[in-house]
């Protein structure tokens, strides 16, 4: 299935059911692109009618707003709303909890009203509706996995269960960290920290958080945010555990499991 932009859809006189808002990390960051591709593979596999904005997508202004630059945020929001409303976008899914939060909670006051779904919730819905069928967890089955609650999905928006239910569908052995759900510790990237050095301290936030994940004995750290993924990977490297522990977005885990089962099927 070919992925198309909304501009291409419009040229054909049609519109997809849902916009996949990729986000800057998902578009440009080499590691996060793998999450984007994994999620797109799942959407293709299920046959969801979706499009992306492509070159018309712009930063929604989250890091600028969190850093205190409201002017820049408002500029970006204005421009994005022009584009989104221009296409008549009603519904969007995103693989980034920061994009999810800002569209869901902060764009409405500026005239951008959309139904916004985070990809872990979208995946859970696909599973519940029977559209996404996982034949066992593949290589994740029975594997010890811990899940990192991102701040903007968890505390920010109260979504704790959907990602865990998706993991349950993979038949993993979920082990929780010392601080999880509403007490989950930040990865250290939020509030535009991703884009600057940390202040002086005893250690780094991501190193401490990753240590909590390592202490569970899990072999996979499941995440739902491209920034958390980056921070946790750095933490795993710092602890010199990259041979034993992988950090994966939940979409990547689903995509991998789909691939494995389809390989098995062709093998039979």
């Amino acid at each position: 299935m070919q992925i198309k932009t909304l501009a291409e859809f419009a040229a054909e006189g049609s519109m997809p059911d849902i916009l996949f808002w990729v986000g800057c990390a998902g578009s440009f960051d080499a590691r996060a692109q793998r999450i984007t591709k994994a999620f797109a593979q799942i959407l293709n596999h299920v046959g969801v009618s979706y499009g992306i904005l492509g070159k018309e997508e712009m930063c929604n202004g989250d890091p600028a707003r969190r850093a205190g630059n409201e002017f820049l945020f408002q500029m970006m929001a204005y421009n994005n709303i022009q584009v989104l409303n221009g296409y008549g976008v009603k519904k969007m899914v995103t693989t980034c909890p920061h994009c999810f939060n800002i569209f869901k909670n902060e764009y409405p006051a500026l005239g951008g009203h959309y139904e916004v779904i985070h990809h872990t919730v979208f995946l859970q819905n696909l599973i519940n509706e029977g559209k996404l069928v996982l034949k066992g967890g593949g290589s994740f089955q029975g594997k010890k996995i811990t899940y990192h609650d991102s701040c903007y999905l968890g505390r920010g928006n109260g979504i704790y269960e959907a990602p865990r239910e998706v993991l349950a569908a993979l038949d993993v052995e979920l082990v929780e960290m010392k601080s999880c759900r509403s007490k989950g510790m930040c990865c250290g990237a939020g509030g535009a920290q991703m884009f600057k050095e940390e202040e002086a301290g005893k250690t780094r936030v991501n190193w401490k958080r990753t240590q909590e994940a390592i202490d569970t004995g899990a072999k996979v750290i499941a995440a739902n945010c491209p920034f958390c993924t980056t921070m946790l990977i750095d933490g795993v490297k710092k602890a010199e555990k990259e041979e034993e522990i992988v950090v994966m977005d939940i979409a990547e885990m689903i995509a991998q499991s789909l691939q494995e089962t389809s390989l098995n099927n062709t093998g039979q």
Binding site: S27, F28, D29, A40, M76
Partner: peptide
């Protein structure tokens, strides 16, 4: 980061033309 967002529409210095390269 601010100037990247302003000029390249992303917090990093990437060309906006590469935004859909993954696609």
């Amino acid at each position: 980061m601010f100037s990247n967002i302003e000029n390249n529409m992303a917090p990093w210095k990437f060309s906006p033309d590469d935004r859909d390269k993954w696609m």
